[in-house]
Design a protein around this nucleic acid. Sequence first.
DNA 1: TTTAATTACGACTGTTTTAGTCGCAATTAG
DNA 2: CTAATTGCGACTAAAACAGTCGTAATTAAA
Lengths: 162, 162
Amino acid sequence: MNKINRKVEYALIGLKHMRSKQPGELTTIKELTALYGCPFEATSKVMQMLAGRGLVRSEQGAHGGYQLVKDLSRVSLYEVMEMVIGPVEIAKCLHGEPGGCDLRQSCNVVSPITLLNRRIIEFYRGLAVGELLDGRVAGPRSQPVELRGLVAEAGHQLSGVE
Amino acid sequence: MNKINRKVEYALIGLKHMRSKQPGELTTIKELTALYGCPFEATSKVMQMLAGRGLVRSEQGAHGGYQLVKDLSRVSLYEVMEMVIGPVEIAKCLHGEPGGCDLRQSCNVVSPITLLNRRIIEFYRGLAVGELLDGRVAGPRSQPVELRGLVAEAGHQLSGVE
DNA sequence: TTTAATTACGACTGTTTTAGTCGCAATTAG
DNA sequence: CTAATTGCGACTAAAACAGTCGTAATTAAA
């Protein structure tokens, strides 16, 4: 769903590592587990998912491994999340039964939550993995609601990089 | 942690309902369960949390109930989430053991994830519950990474309300 | 041709989180 | 006194998450 869980974490770890390699140089799961301590099988499956979606390329057999294919500055965090955990849904009242919400017909917050979900997705879509891994993530457009109006002219100091 | 779970949902349902009442008019849990089908005990606890944090006021005894105290246009979604589910953390590698991550010393993505977490929090902090419940949520500042550069001059059409 | 290293993949298990329930106490209007 | 309501801790059930196991397929190299 929404959280940055282990799968996404392992994906980011692997992607950042692969990005630092020479073009053509392969990365094995063994290498990742040795360097970062992530569990072999779990990491393996994540890389397989990324490979299936064309973000990385896999080479089988001895001396095999994975290789980054795309430019991470042109891949959004949303895409990576979708590859490893499926469509991002911030709440489960958003899809029908089973597993969804049976209060829908009378619920007074479905549409706000739906809208919020869309905004979160937009946020993730606007976030390039390359920039994220470099520590360059743009802040939000708006300032905290508690401060609105109170410190209007000082707002630009807060909405920056921090 | 991060997701809009049932607790947050019940909080929003209750808040939206209370907001529509006359000043001084109370709302009972029974009323909420009847109208929206949410479970009594769970909803009850959520309202108690909101009451403990001063967002609503409770009146005990027969003819008791809850009453909205603050102006929802000045309360952020982050505050509500914190009231009912605690501090927002997008990943659990962010706090130490136990429950945290033991790969920290060798992890290459702790700082990006920490930064991302901060940005998400800023997003929720900048989002007023009142506006959310009205369906007015500002979109993100940036456009999807897939489109960057390609449709530069048409970007403003996409970053708007949709 | 055998062996070792590696990816590929489904099934399974244990743990944690989430969701909801139960029971009973405290408060207050009538 | 009684009924309606909030207050609160303990408990149970279900779902999600994290990780493991077993086994096959592929390929380089001895």
